[in-house]
Every structure is written in structure tokens, then in C-alpha cells.
Design a protein around this nucleic acid. Sequence first.
DNA 1: ATAAACAGCGAACGGTGTTTGCAGTTTAAG
DNA 2: CTTAAACTGCAAACACCGTTCGCTGTTTAT
Lengths: 220, 220
Amino acid sequence: MAGTREPIWARPERGTRGPQPEHSRAAIAAAAVVLADSGGLGAVTMRSVASALGTSAGSLYRYLGSREDLLDLMVDAAIGELPRGDPPAGEWLEDFIVIARELLVLYQRHPWLPETIRPGTSFGPRTMDFFERCLVVLEPVPDSTTTKLEAIGMTVGVVAQFAASAGTPVPPEMLFVAVTPEAHPTLHAALLVTSPPPPEPDLFGKTLRILLTGLLRQVS
Amino acid sequence: MAGTREPIWARPERGTRGPQPEHSRAAIAAAAVVLADSGGLGAVTMRSVASALGTSAGSLYRYLGSREDLLDLMVDAAIGELPRGDPPAGEWLEDFIVIARELLVLYQRHPWLPETIRPGTSFGPRTMDFFERCLVVLEPVPDSTTTKLEAIGMTVGVVAQFAASAGTPVPPEMLFVAVTPEAHPTLHAALLVTSPPPPEPDLFGKTLRILLTGLLRQVS
DNA sequence: ATAAACAGCGAACGGTGTTTGCAGTTTAAG
DNA sequence: CTTAAACTGCAAACACCGTTCGCTGTTTAT
């Protein structure tokens, strides 16, 4: 029953005694984000982050309880890069899709973000700001907040899906070594097509419009 | 240019010389799946899989080129558990949603599966069978195979989203330590609701129906 | 018969997250 | 002002990880 630990957001950044820490959570998160941006999440090790800050791995545990805490910090720092102001005054659907597009470019700038948002992630204050901003935009929608949060969660998932598929522009044939013309005739035929049909111009917006108008009640 | 390696499906399971191997890819995958089911993906180490098979970690490299190969084997083995026969004769939308439901229960039985399907996964023959089965069901739809594959991918993503959110039945307050009544009034109010409204009876089916009827042309 | 290809195994290598003990520093309490 | 508690930083160590290597023995093609 004591397997889990208190999330980092519930612990004070520093105590009231002792010398002033040489680093801050924000600086640690920023250094880790830089490493992840250039080398992927695998490049974010306690030692690499520590050496980027000019300290040692063990010293990081004065700031973090575990590597998971570091990931929580990174997630919140990245989501904190989203635009914050701009409470828009248009139609809620279009406003919300604007937010989704902002999230998409964030996911493309930080490809490690979706995989770092894992089950067990403890979301920080900047992420809560994001959720709040979504709810504000959805204010005109007459559904319950629970339903809205479900719709937001589904949207975030779809955005991650688009960000991931945009990373692999054309499926390399390496991923399809296992298809045989006999067992998979339809699939095999599809892979032989040399010039695929022109892609939907705005599949992203189209998909989200479909999903949201179905999931949330239209304001009459 | 030589950073990537040939996927395991392109290599023969065994050569033509030498003694018969004591294990098989299928047995290795099965052992790894059992470990992941009970202890999560983190419990799947070369040493743990090897010891489950009564051998040593180094010996596994006679069968696998890397741990990634092991994950590829696991993914294909799990997806291979999906029902295979039953080419249904109903409406394509309902038939496809049946497949999606089968995938959902598979994801719930193997919670490690979505995270194991990573960018770079090389899909095996059982997974190709699954794609083929999806395409067969979508045969009556007049869209291009490319569009259908996009719809399938989006469906798989949505199913993973549902499987993940079903794993966390009620968001524990630990995940929301960072919300403050001042900065997040709407969110804060939503978390105070003691009895949330009864959830949509079949949000899963509803969502997929919405998504698929929008993404794919209705058969006229 | 010979040589190549292969299986199995134990030891080792570099890397990982994390813990621990210690020395030095700052602050709160007596 | 003194003292003790709380705190920081650091180096070393621990257990574990994926992976490689060298070796012995076995099977098969030539």
C-alpha cells in the first residue's frame, strides 16, 4: 500500500534551512528537454542531465525522488510552452481545434512528449492550466464537465496519433516484410500502388470536427 | 545508413546446419508475454525471459538480435490471440466495431501491448492477418485502401486510448495535486463533484461510429 | 573426412537508476 | 551567541540492465 510515492508537485521545491540550492526544478527540466529534443528520451539519463548542469547524478536526488519525477517535470515544462493568453471569441469548435493544432506542433517539436505522458504521470500546474484553458473554450457547450474532459482526453489521444503518423511519412517496406500475397491479398495489392491518391488536405481538422461534434452536444 | 537492422521476420528461424535449437521463437514470445502480463513490460528482461525458459541471457541472442526483436515477437504473439475466422456478413460498420471491441479486450488483457507497439516496431505475420481481416470487412466501403488504412490506424489509436483510460477507473487525486481553485476554477469545481453523472452507456461504440462514418464514405 | 555453420554457456563490459556516507553550510531554536 | 537540526553537494558503491565475446561441442554439407 506504500508502493507509490508522493508526486513531486506535492513536495516543496526547497526546505527552509541549509544553503541555497545551486539549481532549480525549472533548470533541471529545461536541460532534460534539450537533451530529449536532440537525442530522444533515451538520451535523458540522470548522468547526462547532471553533467549538462555541471553536477553529478547523485546530486540530482536532492531535487528529484526518482527518474519519474524528472519525466513529470519535463512533461509539464513542455506543455507549459503552449500559448496561454488569447481567450478566443469565435465558435467554440473552431477555437478548440486551434488549441488542438497548437498541441500538434508542440508534439512535433517534442516527439518524446507523447511517450513521456505515461500511465502514472503526475501532471503539474502548467498542464492544469492547459486543461483549464480547454474547459474555458468549451464553456458554451451544455455538456457536463466530465463529458468535456472525456472529449479533451480523446482529442489529446488523436493529436498524438497524428503526430506519430506524421513522423513516419511513408511506411517503409521494412515494416511490411511479413505480408505475403497469398495470405494478405488486399494488403499486398495496396502496397504495390506506386502513386497513392493525394491525401486529404486537412485530415486533422476533419477528424477532430467529426469527433467533437459527435461527442459534444452542438450548441443550439 | 547502416544503423538499422533487418527485422526478425526477415531472418530464418534457424539455419540448415548445427544441432536443433532447444527453444523456438514462439516459446520465447510466450514466456515473455506471461512475464509482461503479471509484472508489466519492466519485468521482461533478457535474464528473466531466459530463466523462465531455463537458459541464460546470452543464449537468447542465438534467437534474437536484440531486445527489440523480443518486443516484436511479443506484439505479434499477442495480436495473434485475436479471433481469426468469422468473416461476418452484417453491415461493415458494425462488423468493424466488433473487431475493435475484440482489440479492446485484448488491450485490457495485455496492458503492456499499446506501449510495446512503438515507432520502429516491425509487424509480424499475425499482425498482417489482422490488417487483412480489417480490410476484408471494409471491402464494401468505396474509399481507397490508403484511406481505409488511415481509418484503421485511427481506430487502433482510439482503442488504445480507451484501454488506457479504463485502466485508471477514477482519476486518483494524486494526479491533480497541482490544481488550485484560483488558477483553475472550472477544473477545481469539476473535481469536487461527488457523484459524477452516469457515464455514457457505450461511449466506445458511439465514438467509433462517429469517427468511422465521418472518415469513410457511407456505402450508398 | 573435413570444414563450415551452428547451439549453448559463463564471464565480462559499459551503462543505467538509485543509495549511502561524509563534509560543509545555513537556519531555527534555546 | 551557541547549538543542533536541516539541508546541499559529492564521490563511491550497488544491483541490475542489454549486449558481446570466447569457448566447447554438435550437426550438416561438401
